[in-house]
Every structure is written in C-alpha cells, then in structure tokens.
Design a protein around this nucleic acid. Structure first.
Lengths: 206, 206
DNA sequence: GTCTATAAGGTGATAGAC
DNA sequence: GTCTATCACCTTATAGAC
C-alpha cells in the first residue's frame, strides 16, 4: 500500500494495455509489441508475466465476458413488476454498454472465429438463464403479457440493445448520414425507448 | 464457352477461395497461403491477379456488402400495404442471411476495425434509405402505426434480424443449451415472428 | 523484475524460368 | 498464366545480462 491508488503495478499495466489492444484489434490483429508500448514496458516482460499471446488473450476475453454476461441476469431480480424490471434491465445494460462500447463486438467477433472458447467459460461461470425464462412464463400465465416463447423475447431484447452498438459504423453512416451526435442521441433515447417498444409488443391491456 | 458451367477459371476460383477464407478469418486472420490452397493454386498467382492482400480483401468486402445492403431496400418497394411489405422484407432478409450466415458478422467486424472502408463503398453504391423513412412517416400520418422515429424502427428491424445470426455461438450455447437444431428452429420461426413482434409494437388497432 | 539481443519461424510480395 | 525459389520483413518467443 505504498503506491498511490492511481498508480498501477506492471501486471495491472499489462492487463489494461492488453484489454485496449485486443478489444480494438482482435486476437489476430493485435501485436504483442503494441501491447508492450501501450503498457510502457518491454515486450519480453509480457512473456514473463503471461507465457504466450494466447494466454494473455484468454485473460482479457474472460474479463470482457464476465463484465457483460452476469449484470444482465442480476438486473432481473427484485420485487418490482415485470415491466419495471424490463425497463431497468434495458437502461442498466445500455448504460453499461455505452461505457464499454467495443466489448460486445469483441466478444461476438472472437466467439465466431473460435466458438469453443465459450464452453470453458460457461463452465467457469455457470450462467443460468432459467430464472428469466421462468419470470417470463409466469407473466404469460398471469396474462399480463401475450403468449411468446421466452427465448424469443430474450433474444429480441438483447438484439435491440446490442445491435446499434456493434453496427455503429453502418448505423451512423447510412442512417444518420455520418452525424455522430445524432447517433449518440439515438443511443441515449434507446435507454427508455427499447423497453417501451418491447412492452408495446407484448403487454396485454385490460 | 468451352468450359462446362460448373468449371471455374482461375480468377473465379481465387474469388471463391478469398471469400471463404476472409469471411471466416477476417482480414488480419486470413493467410494468403490458405487462400491459395483453398483455390488449389500457387500463392504467387494470387499476386498476379490481385496485387496485394489488401486489394483482394477489398473485392471480397465490396461483394459481401453489396449482397446484403440493397436487397433490404428494394424489398420495401411495391404496391402492398405497409405491414405486408414489412413481413416480406423480414422474411426475404432472413432467408438471405440464412444462406450466407457469416456475412453480416464479417461486415460488422471489419467495419469496426476500419470504419472508413464504408465511406468509399457508400459513394460507389449510393445507398439511400430516404424512401423507407418516407414510407414510415406516411404510415404515421395515416395513423396505421403509432408515432415512432423512422430511424428507430429501421434499427429495431435490422437488429431483430441480424443479432441472432451474428451472436449464434452465444445464443446457441446459453439460450439453447448447445442444441443446434433448437437454434435453427428459432431462426426459421423468426421469419414470421420478427414481423409479428414489430407489428404488435407499432400497429394502431381501430 | 526488467532489460537487450537474438533465435526460429511465419508472411506478403517479387524475380525469373517455363 | 503458372510455377519454383527467394527476399525482406515481421512476429512470437526465449536466453542471458543486470
């Protein structure tokens, strides 16, 4: 505890640098030299701490995955009614993504080139979406929402949150004619509008 | 016209091989040697036809982009009513994606690492979504659909179509417990369900 | 722990024979 | 047009001094 809190030791510097470079360039596009430069250290020190590029990448990937997977499920706990929870989930998730906009694309992209990376992680984290399935089925039974496959609803909410972020260049260029401020305004608006859209699609009014 | 139609000349073999390898591995991950092997030719012949890896990649990227961008807009023409058109757009687009499932992720992924690749393509193709904007605004005026930002509706439809495809490993593993047949059944169902979901969210009943 | 130097193999690209 | 041989450089990884 001699260092000030803002100072990082070498290991932390490496992790921070690796996150930045891997998430930006991907596994194949990243260079160990660039990570070393970013961390302000020598290249061979990377191999002293983490034996290989693959191992270093593994750490970054697992960290990135953990950052995004569980928060979404946790947000579905609590005593509130289903629609309130849905609104909270979307707002929370979109805020989280907004702060780390490159992570969803990074995960999806690296998972496509190497799908079996996911299997080990799933075991490691034991993610379980059954509670969310159950919550949706209960609402259908209570007739607060129309009959819909829980998996479909989950995929729709995820897609509506994630797509505008990972497709930023296309959305910004084609739909907003290159205006980044319009793009950002759209993201901000979606924090309430996505839930609004989904609720319009499933809510049964009485 | 001496060759049978199933036979490919060298240039076609190169393009086919380059598509396969680039779309699977990305620009950084692809190897010229692998493309040559895939095409059944020598590596230096690649450079004879296309001067560099970057130029070869450019051809593949533009081809991939053209395959996916315009069909979506064309499908919005026609004399049918808005909801019928929406159903047709979604079904057409999802069928197209189903046949080339790796292309959307490829485009999005490569666009993230190099956004200015899009600028030249846009000029080359002059994509214009204004007609779709206008069609949506007309429906709002006619009060067949509720007030909604046209950009929001377009983004939602795109996201609902594209997300389950590009996030396949995650969706299949976490939501369908690794069952590919369940995953495929979901995709098939979405050809009607996505439009159904969207229409539920925006249609004004009278 | 951190550095310099260098190995060992890959990678895009070219020269030149046929 | 197509091949073999090869260059020049890059990239990961290790050896060894401090």
């Amino acid at each position: 505890m001699v260092n000030k809190m803002t100072e990082k030791n070498t290991e932390e510097k490496i992790i921070a640098a690796a996150e930045k470079v891997f998430i930006e360039k991907g596994l194949a596009g990243a260079r160990m030299q660039e990570i070393a430069d970013e961390a302000g250290i020598n290249k061979s020190l990377l191999h002293y701490y983490y034996r290989s590029k693959e191992l270093l990448f593994g750490m970054v990937f697992r960290f990135a995955f953990k950052t995004f997977a569980p928060d979404l499920l946790k947000a579905f706990d609590g005593p509130d009614d289903f629609f309130t929870k849905l609104e909270r989930v979307v707002a929370t998730y979109l805020t989280l993504i907004e702060k780390n906009p490159h992570i969803p694309g990074f995960i999806i992209s690296e998972l496509s080139t190497n799908p079996n990376r996911l299997v080990e992680i799933i075991k490691l984290m034991n993610i379980d979406i059954q509670p969310v399935f159950k919550a949706i089925e209960e609402e259908i039974e209570k007739k607060t929402i129309r009959k819909i496959e829980p998996s479909e609803l989950i995929i729709n909410v995820l897609g509506l949150c994630v797509f505008p972020i990972i497709a930023k260049p296309m959305v910004e260029t084609i739909i907003f004619k290159g205006s980044e401020s319009d793009y950002k305004a759209m993201l901000e608006k979606r924090k309430t509008e996505v839930a609004h859209f989904v609720i319009s699609a499933i809510k049964i009014k009485d």
